[in-house]
């Protein structure tokens, strides 16, 4: 990491300590000699954050997609579906997490539910919109060839709604991963612990936490962008061009 230290600009020098923190354990002033940081702890915290994020995302997905598909297929509840999306954006993550910690308690189950609550609106709204924007003539044709309503939903509307659903999942993931950063407030130790615990980890720890959190979030983003590409049917991709 001394490569960075060798750079002339003080800005780069500011990051060297953080990289040292990530790769090797450091002394801490408040832990009574117990060393903090290092790649093992970083990975452990990153894993916790990944784990709760995926759990919450899965929960949000299994709730939001069927509901969005159902309302989208019926063509009703637009106000509700879009309203939930708008309201969801307005919820301050910090207030939600703190509120849940103060009222319900701490731990992974509580956190998962809180994160899922933040993750549901984007998926629900985008699924709904995705189904509504599905080519209605294709749906009419499907009905014409004698598909049942469920078959229409599964074989016609769902594939056409995939891009919408994935857009929702990506938005939802951004919310969830970001909020999981402040999960230490509900007793779940994610990478955010470095950020929130300056007195333990020091400034280098805070910065290291920020770097690792950003990297983790971007890994999620890239993985989902790739998945979205793979899941979008080739026909729809061609149409979009």
């Amino acid at each position: 990491m001394n490569v960075l230290a060798a750079l002339p600009h003080p800005v780069f020098a500011g990051f060297t300590g953080a990289f040292e923190f990530i790769f090797s354990k450091q002394e801490s002033s408040v832990t009574g000699g117990k060393k903090v940081g290092g790649i093992e702890q970083v990975l452990e915290l990153a894993w916790t954050q990944t784990y709760v994020s995926l759990l919450a995302l899965a929960l949000a997905f299994v709730i939001a997609v069927p509901v969005g598909l159902y309302f989208g297929h019926r063509g009703t509840g637009e106000l509700l579906a879009v309203g939930i999306g708008n309201a969801g954006r307005a919820v301050p993550e910090l207030a939600l997490i703190a509120f849940i910690a103060a009222i319900i308690g701490v731990g992974i189950p509580v956190l998962t539910i809180a994160l899922a609550v933040l993750g549901i609106p984007p998926i629900l709204t985008n699924t709904f919109v995705g189904v509504r924007q599905a080519d209605r003539s294709a749906v009419t044709a499907a009905r014409g060839v004698g598909m049942t309503e469920f078959e229409i939903l599964r074989k016609v509307e769902l594939p056409m709604a995939v891009p919408g659903i994935m857009t929702g999942v990506r938005g939802s993931t951004v919310n969830i991963v970001a909020t999981a950063t402040i999960a230490p407030l509900v007793g779940v130790v994610t990478l955010g612990d470095f950020i929130l615990g300056e007195n333990v980890y020091g400034t280098n720890g805070v910065l290291a936490g920020a770097i690792c959190t950003a990297i983790l979030a971007l890994l999620f983003e890239f993985a989902l962008a790739g998945l979205q590409r793979r899941l979008t049917s080739k026909g729809l991709r061609l149409q979009a061009q």
Partner: peptide
């Protein structure tokens, strides 16, 4: 812009710490 969007704000704030 997608990358900037995906970085959690808390992390973003503190990434700017040395700057």
């Amino acid at each position: 812009t997608g990358i900037l969007f995906a970085i959690p704000s808390v992390a973003f704030f503190l990434l700017l710490l040395p700057i």
